[in-house]
Design a protein around this nucleic acid. Structure first.
Length: 580
RNA sequence: GCCUCUGUGGCGCAGUGGUAGCGCAACUGUCUUGUAAACAGUAGGUCAUCGGUUCAAAUCCGAUCGGAGGCUCCA
């Protein structure tokens, strides 16, 4: 979780979390308190109770909070020596607080905050009194592991939101409802993009004609761009022998994430669905003697990978078990690393711009020194990390460093994209990898005639096509820009006698390279326009007697209405302009 | 995987012990339409699955399988 900025709202939310804890304490005697920090837009507090708190309890808790607010209790800070503080929490039977105190660094001042007869261990700061908290709402309950570890007990977490004004609170609730309407799972079905089937299995999306068309459009865009930038296409199978993944280290790291192995007991061979494309691409690199003149070698593939995510993690297109990456592996010499890395970042930023996603931040993920899942030497890690940071600094980009967010074979740069509703999605990624080339003993012949080890760059500007489309659906609320729209033009002949002309127009538009369909159903024109609007078709061409007579088409732009009659040439020029 | 909630025709919902209804969509017919919903009719559900309680279960209980919101993990 990213740090929440410390400001007045932060204090309000922090204090409201305490208000909620006090209310829960009064309603549920014997509750054990864990922690209650502010988060973006709100707060939560974790509780431990013999009987879990349910969503149906929230109104009662909220009511109690209002009572406490109306009593306008002063919030008073009290400090205690460590031992006394510890004894106090022990006497109150608050084991989580005791654990927190034990973990505080020596010498730190231990503070409590008192409101009325309720007191809670907290660093603060807080508002001056409970009367300042007026505009809050409890949203939902959730389970959360104590200290975020699944080895620990699961506590009940209550989420809420708090604002300074009634208007702000209402706006926030409206924003949540707006987000719900844009939900890609709902729009995905309504717009005929994709579906899931119980019988196929959870997390395995089925792409419908319109969704597949959208995918294809994005693929074509990326392939064309990669061609300009010297990438070469490859195609590799969806499975690979277990030996390959043992060597790459994926088997060890991804053990819990791979689908059950396919084993041929007679041949003694086992295969697995690939969780990543890298080893296959490495085999292609290793199939030939490479010279420094061949590098950089940029192998690109829209590769579908399969990861057996825990069932509770699956969410629409955001987390699935089979997804397609716009993957590429660049094999470079040390001299080329900086320039190639920067050119990858350039492609990623270019891509986001074209997709209309211009609000993003950059995170450099480095390894967590305490975790042992990473492969490779410290020197390799240091070199890779240094290469990324140098490149990002040379590009003058703002970035933050996040420990523990590296891939198991190397550090990475991730793009966290904010959509139209300011929600953050992790999308594109670039990784610098010295370790897999070493594991697979990759080589190239240098200018000096000696063998050298190449460096790999792993990159996926979209991240995953599936997730990217989920993001785009929500970002645009299904109303894609013209160039992306699965169906760009809908032709609506008014009556049966206009069908021949309609067919004529359809062929011309299609031949001009646009995705077009005619809606010749025997329905009122108004109804067909309504449906085209709801299906978010960007352009409608309405054809009636006047158009047949004058050889024109009446253009209607989604969301804007009738633009009037145009000749075919004008209409096609208009479409070309929209295409951009 | 864990916590809480949830599962009724293609979609959205009503129905809390006495053997299922509404809207939209679909289908058929009539209408031949000028910029966001014509009219009439027809068909469609072993109420997720399996088991239990009961004279009787969509409704109560249990298990399993989906789905949602979180936690952990991640593209």
């Amino acid at each position: 979780m990213s740090e929440v900025k410390h400001d007045a709202l932060y204090d309000l939310r922090h204090s409201t979390a305490h208000l909620m804890a006090q209310a829960v304490g009064e309603l549920f005697p014997g509750v054990k308190y864990a922690i209650g920090p502010p988060i973006e837009d709100g707060f939560y507090y974790d509780f431990d109770l013999p009987e879990p708190i349910r969503e149906e309890h929230l109104p009662r808790i909220e009511q109690k909070m209002r009572e406490l607010s109306n009593r306008k209790l002063a919030i008073v800070r009290e400090e205690m020596p460590r031992e006394l503080a510890r004894e106090f929490e022990v006497s109150q039977d608050q084991p989580y607080k005791v654990e927190l105190i034990d973990d505080l660094p020596e010498g730190e001042v231990i503070s409590f905050y008192r409101q009325g007869d309720w007191i809670d261990l907290c660093r603060g700061p807080h508002l001056a009194g409970t009367g300042e908290m007026k505009h809050f709402k409890l949203l939902h309950t959730a389970g959360a592991y104590w200290r975020g570890s699944e080895k620990n007990k699961m506590l009940t977490r209550i989420y809420g939101t708090a604002w300074f004004s009634k208007q702000d609170l209402e706006d926030y609730i409206t924003r949540l409802e707006e987000a719900k309407k844009r939900d890609h799972r709902v729009l995905g079905r309504e717009l005929g993009l994709f579906m899931f089937s119980h019988d196929v299995g959870p997390g395995l999306p089925l792409w419908l004609p319109k969704g597949a068309t959208l995918r294809d459009t994005l693929e074509q865009f990326m392939k064309a761009e990669q061609l300009k930038r010297g990438y070469q296409p490859v195609v590799t199978p969806h499975i690979g022998s277990t030996r390959l993944y043992e060597k790459s280290g994926h088997l060890k790291t991804y053990r819990s994430k791979i689908f059950p192995l396919m084993v041929d007991s007679e041949e003694g061979e086992s295969y697995m669905l690939k969780p990543m494309n890298c080893p296959h691409h490495i085999m292609i690199y290793a199939s030939d003697l490479r010279s420094y003149r061949d590098l950089p070698l940029r192998l690109a593939e829209f590769g579908t990978v399969y990861r057996y995510e825990q069932s509770g993690e699956l969410t629409g297109m955001l987390r699935v078990r089979g997804f397609t990456q716009d993957d590429s592996h660049l094999f470079v010499t040390p001299d080329q690393l900086g320039a190639e890395f920067k050119s990858v970042v350039d492609l990623m930023l270019f891509t986001l711009k074209r997709l209309g996603l211009e609000d993003y931040r950059v995170r450099v993920g480095v390894r967590d020194p305490k975790d042992d899942k990473y492969i490779g030497s410290d020197e390799n890690w240091a070199a890779a990390q240094e290469a990324i940071i140098r490149a990002v600094e040379e590009l003058g980009m703002e970035y933050e460093i996040s420990e523990g967010d590296a891939a198991f074979y190397g550090p990475k740069l991730d793009l966290l994209v904010r959509d139209a509703l300011k929600r953050e999605w992790q999308m594109g990624t670039v990784q610098v990898d010295y370790n897999l080339p070493e594991r697979f003993e990759l080589e190239y012949v240098g200018e000096d005639g000696a063998k050298h080890r190449p460096i790999m760059i792993h990159r996926a500007p979209f991240g995953s096509l599936d997730r990217m489309i989920g993001l785009l659906v929500e970002h645009y609320a299904g109303a894609f820009p013209f160039w992306m729209a699965p169906q760009q033009v809908s032709i609506i002949p008014i009556a049966d006698r206009h069908h021949a002309y309609s067919e004529n127009v359809l062929v011309k538009i299609r031949d001009a390279g646009f995705r077009v369909a005619a809606d010749s159903r025997n329905e009122k024109m108004g109804k067909r326009i309504r449906e085209a609007e709801m299906q978010k078709v960007p352009v409608m061409l309405v054809l009636g007697d006047r158009d047949v007579e004058n050889g024109t088409v009446s253009i209607r732009r989604r969301g804007e209405g009738d633009l009037g009659a145009k000749t075919m040439e004008e209409a096609i020029a208009y479409l070309r302009e929209l295409q951009g």
